[in-house]
Every structure is written in C-alpha cells, then in structure tokens.
Design a protein around this nucleic acid. Structure first.
Lengths: 215, 215
DNA sequence: TGCTGGAACGTACAGTGTAAGTTTTTGCGA
DNA sequence: TCGCAAAAACTTACACTGTACGTTCCAGCA
C-alpha cells in the first residue's frame, strides 16, 4: 500500500515559497512559522535546509536577481545598460520587498555575481577606465535602487495620484510651502501627471557617461 | 526635603534619545523597552507622549532632516543643489539608519516639507518646467538615497577596502567572473582605490539638468 | 528484521509592540 | 496647608518573533 509520502522539503522550495509569500503578503508577513505553514510543515523543519532567516533572505535576493536580463558587452553599450536597468527596475517592482533587501545586505550569490560581472564587462568594453567603470556602475545602481524605493511610497496610477494630491493639499499651506503647493495643484488639475519617470534620471546618467567616454 | 524630581518626559526628549540610541547601537537595537531604559523610565510611559513606535520613527526622520542645509533659490542653482545633496549625504552618513527609514515611509513632518519646498523652489526658479522640476528632484534624491544605502555595505576606508578585496578574491574565479576579478585586483594593488564617489553620479545628473535648462 | 541517519516535530526561552488597568506624582484652588 | 483632579509613570498580560535543544518518526540498507 503506497502511503502518501510527503514531498521532500528543499532549500529551493523554501526560497520559492518565501518569494511567493513576500510578494503576496509583504516582507513583514514573512516569518519562519508562516513560511513553514505555507509548506505544510513546522517552523523548525526549515532549519534542516536553511541556516537561519538571514540565509532565507539572502537566497530570496539571489533568486530574483536571476530574473534580470543580463547586458552583453560588444554591442551598443548604451542600449545594453538601458535594458539591464529597465529590467532590474521591472523585477523590483514585481518584488517590492527586493530593493530594501538588496541594499541592506552584501549579496554574493551566484546570480548576483554574474549580474555584476556582466554589467562591469559591458561598461569596460565600452571604453571606460576601471575607475570609471566602477563609478558608472555604482551611479546607475544608485538610480535603480533609489528610484525604485522612492516609487514605492507613491501611487503609481496618475489618476490615483491626482486624487491623493487633492487630499494632501490642505497640509500644504501656500504661505509656508509655496512651491509644493503649486506643484500639487498642477498634479490635481492634470497639467502635470506627477509620474516620476525612471528613464529621466537614467538618460541623464547615460548621456553623461557617453560624453565621458568620448573624451 | 526636596525630593529628586524627575525631569519631565517629552516627545522631544524621546525623539532625541531615539536618534542617539539608533546612532550608537543601530536601528535594530531601538526597541521601546531599551529606549525607555535610556530615559530611566518604563516602556509604556513613552506612550503618553508618542502614539506608537512608527510615530517615533517618523519623528526621528523629521528630526535629522532638519540637519540638512536648505538650498535657496535665486543664486547659482547648481551650487545650491550640490550643497544640499552633499549635506543630505553627510547627514545620512552620520545617521546610518536614516536613508532606510526615509525611503520606507511617507514623511510629512515640517522639516521634510520645508526641505522639499526649498529644493523644488530652487529648481523651478532656475528655469525648469514643473514636470522637469519634479523629475529632477526625484532623480537627485534617487542618487542621494541609492548611493548612501549602497555605501553602507562597503568599508569606507580605502585601505580597509583593499584588504577586504583580497579576502573576496578567491570567491571570484577568473573564468567565471573575469571583470569582477580584474577590478578586484586593481583595488588590491592600489591602481584603483575602489572609492565610490558621491559627486561622480551627482555631477552627471547636474550637468544633464543644465543642458536641459539651456534648451 | 533490525539499525542508522536524516528529517520533521514539540517544547521552551528571551525578546518584540502595545492594550488595559493600577499606582504615583504633580500642580492648583480653597 | 490641605484635598483633589489630572497627568504621567508603572504593572501586567497577550500574541507574536527567531531559534536552541531534545524527541520521534521513517525510509533505505545490512
């Protein structure tokens, strides 16, 4: 008689479940007990496969970094950088817990290392010096993480933003905060949609790098 | 007989103690009980002056935002933006817990509002449209927060970095991560100090904005 | 058939934020 | 100076956290 054998717990399954849970319920909801329960297991059983909660978080980061499309050196470096930044941004929007986690720990997972190496390679082969490559990489990543983190405090939908702005307006008296007040009115009346454009800052950086390269 | 009267607890004192504790012991060490004990008081007494822990965190953010030197419109906008970005960066280095908190919550404290208003005003008076002002502000802040957050995972001291790099090198086999490997060797031998320069990315953005303005 | 190693389980502990109830301290009017 | 009300501190309690430690179960091999 074939007994219902429990499907084996693995590090892989645990990490996938973590990502799913954090995506759906938020990072705060990710506790070892809750994670275990989604896998129909007790909390302590997880520790047979992962070292501790930090290990889980590290694993989650490397897992989703693997979703970013890698740039390839040799072709149009600007297009490659634009593509990788946009992809990274999109991945982090799909996993809102990710940017916070990425910037608050040193990641040395295989996906992360490959991702960094591909980025450095593209910049270097585009003609930047090593120091420029390092700083260009850092500047672009600052934009990616900084922008994505800031975006998470804003309603993405322009209409939603307009109505949210209307609610905020009373907190912004003209005499105290004249510029915020006026900017907000422009958002409300639709003459500025208030959308923060990821590519705006990105293109400033890319153009600047291009001029650096030309010299 | 004059009894030793306890100095009165206030929201102000609580927030200052929070900042001090977080500066010294890190944000993780900031619990309501520990915070209370530094004030020689029980945890629940704090709730007579602050709504809850989130209120404390919000207050801490606004407190340190007040340390940033405000830009003023009318003069050299680029110098003003450079000064405010550098000041913001410096403040966040002095309070390493700050950037994380700032980007993970919507701040509407008086200091924050004044800070934003001054920034928007300077950009607007420099000749940018409202949409450009909004996006320029966002791009610069992305750099400030993103850069500062990334910096916190790196040893600040170049020598420290060089020796840390030597430790990392074995994790970066040439055949798998050729570019990271070579960059690391340059850091080790001192031909590139590995320092990530805050002004590098900032100037790229400022120059880009200047060209935008000129058009 | 019995043993062994691995994996899941159960219990326990120190810590968290904070609701609710109790006691102490303080400032003020009589 | 006294008495009292209100403010503020304290105490207890609860549900939750990560995880150390010890027990139990079970599949695969001798």
């Amino acid at each position: 008689m074939p007994k219902a054998r429990r499907s084996p717990l693995t590090r892989e399954r645990i990490l996938r479940a973590s990502v799913r849970l954090a995506d759906k319920q938020g990072l705060d909801a990710l506790s070892m007990r809750r994670l275990a329960s989604t896998l129909k297991v007790e909390a302590m059983s997880l520790y047979n496969h992962v070292a501790n909660k930090d290990d889980v978080l590290d694993g989650m980061v490397d897992l989703i970094i693997g979703e970013i499309t890698l740039p390839t050196a040799g072709g149009d470096w600007k297009a490659a950088m634009r593509a990788r930044a946009t992809s990274a941004h999109a991945v982090m929007l799909a996993h809102p817990w990710a940017p916070m986690l990425v910037v608050s720990r040193i990641s040395v997972g295989p996906n992360m290392l490959r991702y960094i190496d591909a980025t450095l390679g593209t910049l270097r082969e585009a003609g930047l010096s090593w120091a420029e490559t390092d700083r260009a990489w850092n500047a672009m990543d600052s934009h990616i993480y900084g922008f994505t983190l800031q975006l998470q405090n804003f309603p993405v939908d322009p209409e939603e933003y307009a109505s949210a702005a209307a609610n905020y307006l009373p907190m912004l008296p003209v005499e105290k905060y004249p510029y915020m007040h006026e900017l907000t009115t422009h958002v409300i009346d639709g003459s500025h949609d208030g959308t923060h454009d990821f590519s705006f800052g990105l293109e400033l950086i890319l153009d600047g790098l291009d001029r650096l390269r030309a010299r």
